[in-house]
Design a protein around this nucleic acid. Sequence first.
DNA 1: TTTTATACATAAGAAAATTATGTATATTTG
DNA 2: CAAATATACATAATTTTCTTATGTATAAAA
Lengths: 112, 112
Amino acid sequence: MGNSKLYKGSLTTIIMKLLAENDKMYGYEITQKVKKLTQGELNITEGALYPALHKLEADGLLHVEVKKVDNRLRKYYKLTEKGTKETANLLTELQRYIETMQHLVNPKFSLD
Amino acid sequence: MGNSKLYKGSLTTIIMKLLAENDKMYGYEITQKVKKLTQGELNITEGALYPALHKLEADGLLHVEVKKVDNRLRKYYKLTEKGTKETANLLTELQRYIETMQHLVNPKFSLD
DNA sequence: TTTTATACATAAGAAAATTATGTATATTTG
DNA sequence: CAAATATACATAATTTTCTTATGTATAAAA
């Protein structure tokens, strides 16, 4: 993914948040959207994306709908109700992670 | 580590930053410091910490000095010159990561 | 016509963590 | 005083998550 190891563990959060904003998206579309939104900083690889989508589907967080467009296959993913709830949790966790890291890295927040 | 998957990949950054602030620290001390600074949010496990410290030492980013205190062993770690430079890079990467994730998650920064 | 883009997928391997276990000493608590 | 907890290190087996490589197929651009 990114040029930094820090992106490890954040792929699911990214996918879910994009689907929360865009209702339904297909895999390739997600990679392009992320590339654009991050100005090329984050390029999701297929080897990371597709297994992640399959797992989210298996966990009942995403629902898939196959469509044929221009004689090419597309798998549209959409949040389930469970997925919508889980997205809220993941975004809360992200904010908490960011705050925690700021505390650790910014000494002026130090407790001791 | 944390209750969130997001902490994956950030352990090295945390260790290096603490050593940049505290000159020299030993492993157990790092776990306690992090627990305190994060109010219990982040508990570094020994299975993650020690292999990470050994790798940083092997990479020439940390220097180790063994001391016996109260008849117990302590391994004090300190940043090398190379480690100090690398710490600056890691902190820059962390800030960049946080900004990128804010862009993705906070729609008001959206480009399209 | 060859390369790039679109669109999916999986397999092998690496990296970084979790969980479990092990050794040993010091201190606290019931 | 005995048992539990804290201090302090370590590693091995396994799991998770990613990279890299490879594969199939159609469409568009160079």
